[in-house]
Each structure stands twice: as structure tokens, then as C-alpha cells.
Design a binder for these strands. Structure first.
Lengths: 109, 109
DNA sequence: AAAATTTATCGTAAAAATACGATAAAAAAT
DNA sequence: ATTTTTTATCGTATTTTTACGATAAATTTT
């Protein structure tokens, strides 16, 4: 019990679910917004903006990285993150086709 | 410790995160697609389509209900679910403004 | 060289999500 | 009236997520 079972679904569904999961916490949405807001894609000032400990923010950043929504590069002792626009575009396309499918017909309830 | 901390963020961020979380599992995406596919918004044939136990599907349906993405009505012994188009529209708007914000400028990495 | 800064990772704890079987409750069929 | 069907809920086990403090590793600053 409590297993995965996610492999049993289509790859598009899995992909969309993964990306949606990355957005499934307000902290990560806030991080993405903050990364977009700063013209310099600077890093751990994010920690100052969020009401979370540094290690927790680092963990959220890691999840966003794994989902592919952000990119990171080390710059001296500071790490620099920024939005991965390609992944965002892919995300938009997946959502588009999802909404196209689900909103196609009138509701019946 | 594993507390919430979600209240510390903006309501729009919380709202979007909630909706994204509802999409954060392929089974729920598959359920929504199936509900949209059938012209009659019928119910637990979903169980036959998904590779999950009846109780698990029921649990996923409950989460979709709580997120507001579907509506349910009891019809005799069968329960009938269908997509809540209003919630979907709201979801689309929230995503729109999120993408508008995050895709506004060129990446810098 | 020593101290301070920055960030990732480890360890840990608590909470939430995932999944199933068993069971209950209600309606339909026999 | 009894049996069957349908679905929600309960109990439980496992896994994942969330969060923090402590620490390590690397680079600056002093």
C-alpha cells in the first residue's frame, strides 16, 4: 500500500502532473514570481523575501530544478537561479491541450 | 517540523497552489479527462477505466470535489460527477496571470 | 591566516498523500 | 423480503512532503 502507481498512466499525464506538483505550494509560486521580478536572476535574496528557513527555501529550489522550471548556475559563493522559459512554454502547451480537452463540451450536471 | 506555513503567502498564490495540487497526480488528470469525454457525466465507470481500487478512485474524486474542479450529484445508488466549468475558468485566469508575470522578461542565465 | 558569508546537504520530526481491503449505507433487482 | 449493486468511509500501512537546525564546503572579506 502507499505505492506509486503513477507509471500506469500516460506520459503526458505524468508530465503535466509533475509540473503541476511543482506549482502545488505557494512558496514555490512565490519563488518563481520573485525570480521573474528581479532583472538579475539572483539567488538567495529569495530567502529574505520568504517566511521560511534557508534550508527550506533551498529544498523548494531543488524541487523546482528537478521539475525543470528553473535553471541554476554557481557564481562564486552565491548560486544564481533563473526561470527556464523552455519548460514554461512546454507547461503552457500541456495545459492548453488539457483545457482544450476538458472544456470542450458543456457541463451536464 | 512538518507544519503548514501556507497561510503566510498571498491568497492568489494559495488558490493557484490548491488548484495545481489537484492536478498533481496523473490519476486525477485522467479522471477529469474521462469526465469530459463522456457526454453523460457518469460516475464510477471511471473505476473501470483506471488502474486503481474503487476506494482510491473515490478518494481522488473527493479531492477534486474539495478543490472545486468537479461537481457531484447523487442519482439513485449511483453518484454522478461532472466538470465544474466555472472553476476551470478561474484556474485558467490564475494561470494566465501567473504566466504573464513569470514569462514577462527574457531569461538571464 | 582567520573570520565571515553563502548555500547545499544531512538528520530528524511531523504532517499529508497514496493506496488498499473491509465494511457500511442506500437503492435496485430478484 | 432477500440479494445484489454502487459508492462512501474507516482503518491501516507506506511513502512523500514540509520544515527546521546543524553542519559542511567553498569563497570572500578582514
Amino acid at each position: 500500500m502507499g505505492s506509486h502507481k503513477k507509471e500506469a498512466f500516460g506520459t503526458e499525464e505524468q508530465e503535466l502532473a509533475e509540473l503541476a506538483k511543482a506549482l502545488a505550494h505557494p512558496a514555490r509560486i512565490a519563488i518563481l514570481k520573485e525570480l521573474a521580478r528581479r532583472q538579475t536572476c539572483i539567488c538567495g535574496e529569495i530567502v529574505e523575501v520568504l517566511p521560511l528557513a534557508q534550508s527550506t527555501v533551498s529544498q523548494h529550489l531543488k524541487e523546482l530544478l528537478q521539475a525543470g522550471l528553473i535553471q541554476g548556475s554557481v557564481e562564486g559563493v552565491k548560486s544564481c537561479y533563473c526561470i527556464n522559459r523552455n519548460a514554461f512554454t512546454r507547461f503552457e502547451h500541456l495545459l492548453q491541450s488539457f483545457f482544450d480537452t476538458t472544456m470542450a463540451q458543456k457541463g451536464c450536471c
